[in-house]
Simulated assay, not measured.
Amino acid sequence: MSTVRTVLGDVAPEQLGVTDAHDHLFLRMPRLAGEELDDQDAAIAELAAFRDAGGDTVIHWTPHGLGRRAGDLVAVSEAAGAHVVAATGLHQEAHYDPQLLAGLRSGLAELFVTELTEGIEGEGPATPRAGMIKVAGDFHSLSRHTRWVMTAAAEAHRETGATIGVHLERGTAAALVVDLLCVRLGVPPAKVVLGHLNRSPDLGMYHEVAAAGVFLAFDGPSRANHESDWRLFESLVALAEFGCSDRLLFGGDTTTASARAATDGGPGMPYLLSTMRPRLTSELGEDVVRRMMVTNPARAFANDWR
């Protein structure tokens, strides 16, 4: 039976409810020095604000080695009253100490499998299991590091059934990722989620990867340094008209402390529901928006765990 692996245990897909399909409660990266997401009370407040706006689940895409604090996600989930799905995986090479990567060189797939099946150790008082694998592409290319990580992710998928979520750098290299993961490494397209597609509004590319059968995640709305919301709506309307509404996902991708709504920043997690959902409903209709926020996430992150 398919279930979604949350930090509090496996749940039926229909229990996810309204889902933020790509976000972060804890995150620490050198490029974001001074903006770390490392305050547990702030994480609880942000998740509770999302819940109060009508949200039920957040997919937490922070991978191994980037301040994920998986052991603290249990307390955050319990305190806020919302589901959280944690991630294993690795980001781009630039985000890590070379010594850490060298230590993983011969056992990366095993690490992913362990965190998915046994639990994530050393990141807080609890040892929750990860419920997805996060990997990352490069700008219009796939580096040697990226191919190594994606190959390990594909192996871990084969052993566990876990969904693979992909950070697309500025929304690029989507076709290369699909070719590597799905064609060359044999990961079923329905087990691949492509993130950040809104950052490169290329309808031809959207159609190409949608036809392959992967899930298409549009996340991080209302950022001045990315494509603005009007391009987001334009893209989603086009994809819905193309018949892809059963593969669309929506998320916030909150990556900095100043972007949290609960601590007087923004737009934050609640923005998806307080501002974006009414506008999406007006543009796409209630049925499509429900697919994006309820039905599709339940399909994308539910797995027959092995």
Rank of each mutant, 00 (worst) to 15 (best):
G119A: 06
R299I: 09
L248P: 02
T88H: 11
D38T: 05
A21E: 01
P188F: 11
E110C: 01
F301G: 03
G17A: 09
V178S: 07
L232K: 04
L108G: 01
L32C: 03
E78H: 10
L101T: 07
M269E: 11
T57S: 13
T62P: 00
C244T: 02
E46K: 12
F215P: 01
A12Y: 02
G9H: 04
Q99A: 15
F250E: 00
G213Y: 08
I44G: 08
V113M: 09
G103C: 06
T88R: 02
V187Q: 05
E159I: 00
D287T: 15
T275G: 03
L185I: 03
L16F: 10
H91C: 07
L100M: 15
L176M: 13
V177H: 02
R158C: 01
T275C: 03
R68C: 04
S282I: 00
A43T: 05
I164C: 03
A217P: 00
G89H: 03
H140T: 09
G220K: 02
L37V: 13
A86I: 09
N303I: 13
R223K: 15
P30C: 07
A240L: 09
A45S: 14
I120R: 01
E169W: 05
E78K: 15
D20L: 07
T88A: 12
G265K: 06
P98A: 05
M150L: 11
S245E: 15
F215E: 06
L27V: 01
T263Q: 09
A130K: 05
R290C: 01
A262Y: 02
A224C: 07
A298S: 15
V4F: 10
V135E: 04
E155S: 07
A82E: 04
D38M: 09
L116Y: 07
R69G: 02
G137K: 04
D253L: 06
I59F: 13
D202P: 00
L181A: 08
G195Q: 05
P201G: 02
P201E: 10
S106C: 04
S235E: 11
P63N: 07
A82N: 08
